[in-house]
């Protein structure tokens, strides 16, 4: 009996710890005062100034643009890579998968500076293009790792069975293999998209003047101290994430049934 209450208390404390900072941001996003120490009345002003903040709006645009392009490219390359890897000789596959896991295991900062070194050496001006290239680089490994298991779960000889029945390899890929690995592709694309949206470190080293994503914008603003617009931004982002996850959760539940 005591154990049960202890568990509840612990759960409440943990969730409190997780959500307190977010709650504080949300509350102070409506605070009519620059200070976070005292309450100066309710206001929507920070939301207004958030939408008028040119830096944040531009960063939002770049964040979404980069995420869409990078996740599309990495999903395409990663899916075909998984297809190739699945039919590869075990040793070669193992070597490639080890290289594949380098960007996952390596600290972001190492991946960031190594790509920056490459772009500078190739004389590519740091900016939108380099940021997209960098994002594709760290997304591909995750796509490969989410698609490859789908190939491995696929009943063996699927491709051969289709070809045996007269399907050309391309037809077999579209009609037989693609439907089997589709969940993995979707997962991979979602991971790539979220990673890209969330990335700070690698983008930080691989972007140039005028091009920044939300993370970089927040970082440069936060370094200069507390900005109530950021509170407003956090609240909006939290609500977006919450709604998205609730939808996702509903959907997976329906699929499970």
């Amino acid at each position: 009996m005591v154990g049960k209450w202890l568990k509840r208390l612990y759960t409440i404390l943990m969730f409190g710890f997780l959500y307190a900072p977010i709650a504080v941001l949300a509350i102070f996003s409506f605070n009519d005062s620059k200070s976070t120490a005292k309450w100066g009345g309710f206001t929507f002003d920070w939301y207004k100034s958030l939408f008028q903040n040119d830096l944040i709006m531009r960063s939002l645009y770049y964040t979404i643009l980069v995420a869409i392009i990078a996740s599309a490219i990495s999903t395409l390359i990663g899916t075909f890579a998984a297809f190739g890897l699945y039919y590869m000789k075990p040793l070669k596959q193992k070597v490639l998968l080890n290289v594949n896991s380098l960007p996952i295991l390596n600290p972001d900062i190492v991946t960031g500076i190594s790509l920056m070194t490459l772009f500078v050496a190739l004389n590519i001006k740091l900016g939108l293009i380099t940021m997209i290239l960098a994002h594709v680089t760290f997304c591909i490994p995750y796509v490969v790792l989410s698609v490859l298991p789908k190939f491995k779960q696929m009943p063996s000889e699927m491709l051969e069975a289709a070809m045996d029945l007269g399907a050309t390899p391309w037809y077999a890929f579209r009609k037989v293999i693609y439907p089997e690995i589709k969940p993995g592709i979707i997962t991979g694309a979602l991971i790539a998209f979220t990673l890209s949206i969330d990335d700070f470190v690698i983008s930080f080293f691989n972007t140039g003047s005028g091009v920044s994503n939300l993370s970089i914008a927040i970082y440069s603003m936060a370094r200069r101290g507390i900005k109530p617009e950021i509170n407003a931004l956090s609240t909006l982002m939290f609500i977006t994430v919450l709604i998205l996850l609730l939808i996702l959760n509903k959907r997976t539940k329906i699929e499970e049934i």
Binding site: I22, V24, I218, S234, F238, L245
Partner: peptide, 16 residues
Amino acid sequence: VPMWMNFLLRTYAWMT
């Protein structure tokens, strides 16, 4: 959910 929030924002929250 908090994990899906931007990492910078999560850190920034503690500044406040």
